[in-house]
């Protein structure tokens, strides 16, 4: 039956069969991504005992809101604010520096270019844990230990190699004619960079902002090593308050995690359009 139908339907209808399959797959993936998320939220409204006794995949019964009041009264907003500051500063610096570096690597011919590019790839391969001790030493020597400043260096540095690598790929796709035309108009390379390359790299920059923003927002190892006072800690360290040697309050931890992920979701909703618009918007302006 089905075969017959598929044969009968020619051209456009055939693709609509494909489209139907695509929609089914899309909905399936939606369930897969949504279910764990929903359970994270639901379980954050329960008591640990209820959660364990009734099972994790059970609606809150009764709904329990004290987790959230506990989290908020334990200085959550301070953690939150500090995370925003660190991530925002690191992200802006990182995007500027990596765009700077990606420009000559993608669009200029000079000696050692290939070597530098290979070096960038090699730096992507450095396991993060080998840098913990040297960076700790450096931070204490600079007198930056236990301050938010201490995090910015490692956050920027660790996002750099990958970001440069990605931006090089993005910048390579920008048509050369645009730049050459500008050069004839007497633009130098620095103006070129700011007026042509940077605006046209927006989709790449936006992707990197998302990728690294999330990574920095959730970063634990450096924050835990370089910061010790509760008044300087960032969000991922807030979990520690509810975790001990033998004690762990899972619902409260889930409520911290829920609260930490919400601003990311809102930001994503606000900025997701930028992802697709980049090139088109840039080209219209140019």
């Amino acid at each position: 039956m089905r075969d017959k139908k598929a044969k009968q339907a020619k051209g456009p209808k055939k693709t609509s069969v494909a489209w139907t399959i695509a929609i089914i797959l899309a909905l399936f993936w939606m369930i897969l991504t949504l279910v764990p998320f929903v359970f994270m939220i639901l379980n954050s409204f329960r008591k640990q005992f209820d959660m364990l006794q009734q099972g994790v995949f059970h609606l809150p019964d009764p709904w329990y809101f004290k987790n959230y009041t506990d989290v908020i009264s334990n200085g959550f907003f301070g953690y939150f604010l500090r995370s925003i500051i660190v991530v925002a500063v690191s992200l802006v610096l990182m995007l500027i520096i990596s765009a700077f570096a990606a420009y000559p690597l993608s669009r200029m011919n000079f000696k050692f270019r290939e070597l530098i590019y290979a070096g960038v790839v090699a730096m992507m391969s450095v396991p993060m844990h080998v840098t913990l001790i040297p960076i700790f030493k450096l931070t204490t020597d600079l007198g930056m230990y236990d301050s938010l400043k201490a995090l910015i260096g490692p956050y920027v540095a660790f996002a750099l190699p990958m970001s440069i690598f990605v931006l090089v790929a993005f910048m390579k796709t920008i048509p050369r004619e645009l730049e050459e035309a500008a050069e004839i108009d007497g633009c130098n390379r620095f103006r070129n960079f700011f007026t042509i390359i940077l605006p046209l790299s927006k989709p790449g920059l936006a992707t990197l902002a998302i990728y690294n923003g999330v990574a920095m927002w959730n970063e634990f190892a450096f924050a835990n090593t370089l910061i010790q006072s509760p008044s300087k800690k960032t969000l991922p360290l807030a979990l520690g308050q509810f975790k001990g040697e033998h004690a762990l309050d899972i619902p409260i931890i889930l409520s911290v995690l829920t609260l930490s992920v919400l601003p990311m979701i809102i930001l994503f909703i606000v900025f997701q359009d930028k992802l697709v618009k980049g090139m088109m918007a840039g080209a219209v302006k140019g």
Binding site: T33, P36, L254, L257, V261, I265, F268, Q272
Partner: peptide, 22 residues
């Protein structure tokens, strides 16, 4: 787009916990 993106926004701690249970 937003729903599909949710997993990437969650930290490994949260993911590990939810999947241990799942």
């Amino acid at each position: 787009k937003v729903i599909w993106f949710l997993p990437y926004l969650m930290s490994s701690v949260a993911i590990a916990f939810l999947f241990t249970y799942a």
